[in-house]
Design a binder for these strands. Structure first.
Length: 360
DNA sequence: TCTGGGGTCCTAGGACCC
DNA sequence: TCTGGGGTCCTAGGACCC
């Protein structure tokens, strides 16, 4: 039986701001773009949450709910530094660390939990070390699989520690709403409710054939999770599948120099990230969101992998020209590259003498 | 209330090939 | 005159996560 840890930095971006700016401690802090630029909440401190402010909420609403909140624009570089520090510490415990985002990771501690005195002792150790090293609190969930560990870490936030003993998985999950399961969002929740399932126990006990008829393969996977079965491995290495950049405008834009300028900015940013990542792409996608929020994508593939700004810009312009109609107004434009492959030139530079071989 | 930006994964249809 | 089956690639949209 495995021992999986899920660790989650509490209200991460907001906590970092309170750490770096002591005058913000104890005050409601909301991290995100300004309301007049259609910003949303990226993170809210617990003081702000008391007013009902939540992640992903429009900033305009957040500031109405909590007019005294201090709004702070995000500083992803800074959050990345601290994230790196925490992940490096986790890797000193076990190499089997799978970061999910800047503020979350799974650790497979099966091989090391005994020498740390068991799951609970290890959990306390992780919390106190992170607090000592960063002055931030984490919530930790420990269980025999990813589903259980992840949900356990959510149960006692902030600064929580929940350990689910092997064998207790199903009874731990049973009373929770189906929405608590990873992969059940608003749509799936409504569909499950419509089918009479509100709790994880309902899902676990549902007729399997019926579930597959109504929800397909997804339904079967969800039922397995609901029963506490989940053998997904902790994967320390993830191959990137896409790279892109998008932006929402403060005001909707018609096609014209301003929109085309934004398109080029996004294409340049995408090319930059592609090169930084050492990748080439065979597919360029354009993303457009109309004033009415309808979103479309148009993509085009080329035979030879590219990473050049001019090429990406050219394709993106052509895709835009092909869809835009007189009178259209847009609130967002984005460029994304997929079908990635390694850049052979950079790959070669990984073995000694490669530069000489290439340069002749 | 008026909806970010970074992603992943899945589905489904059509083209094309053998 | 009425048409297969399997596989792969491409495209578009949508659900979901943090």
């Amino acid at each position: 039986v495995r021992t999986i840890v899920h660790a989650d930095l509490d209200a991460f971006y907001a906590s970092v701001e309170q750490l770096d700016r002591p005058e913000l401690r104890g005050r409601p802090v909301v991290v995100g773009g300004p309301p007049e630029a259609r910003g949303v909440v990226a993170a809210a401190s617990y003081e702000a949450r008391r007013f009902g402010v939540r992640s992903a909420m429009p900033m305009s609403r957040a500031m109405r709910l909590c007019p005294d909140a201090v709004r702070v624009p995000p500083r992803f570089q800074r959050y990345g530094e601290i994230s790196h520090q925490v992940m490096a510490y986790f890797r000193s415990i076990t190499p089997l660390v799978e970061p999910l985002s800047l503020d979350e990771a799974f650790l497979d501690v099966s091989e090391v939990v005994d020498r740390h005195g068991g799951a609970e002792a290890l959990g306390r150790r992780l919390k106190s070390e992170v607090k000592h090293r960063t002055a931030l609190t984490i919530s930790v969930g420990i269980g025999s699989n990813k589903t259980v560990a992840k949900i356990a870490s959510d149960m006692q936030k902030p600064d929580g520690l929940v350990v689910v003993a092997p064998g207790d998985e199903a009874s731990f999950l049973a009373p929770l709403p189906v929405r608590a399961l990873w992969g059940v969002g608003p749509k799936a929740e409504s569909a499950l409710h419509a089918a009479g399932m509100r709790t994880v126990a309902d899902l676990a006990q549902a007729h399997t054939g019926e579930l597959e008829r109504r929800f397909g393969a997804r339904g079967l996977m969800l039922q397995e999770m609901a029963r506490g079965h989940d053998d997904r491995a902790v994967e320390p290495v993830h191959e990137r599948k896409s790279v892109g950049a998008e932006t929402t405008f403060a005001q909707d834009l018609p096609d014209g120099p301003e929109l085309r300028g934004e398109l080029e900015r996004m294409a340049r940013e995408t090319a930059h990230r592609l090169v930084a990542h050492g990748s080439l792409a065979r597919t360029v996608a354009l993303k457009l969101r109309y004033a009415n929020f309808r979103t479309i994508t148009r993509q085009s593939s080329v035979p030879e992998p590219i990473d050049g700004v001019e090429e990406i810009v050219r394709i993106a312009h052509a895709l835009l020209s092909a869809v835009v109609e007189p009178g259209d107004r847009f609130r967002l434009i984005g460029v994304q590259c997929t079908n990635l492959s390694g850049d052979e030139r950079r790959q070669l530079s990984l073995w000694p003498g490669a530069a000489d071989a290439v340069l002749g």
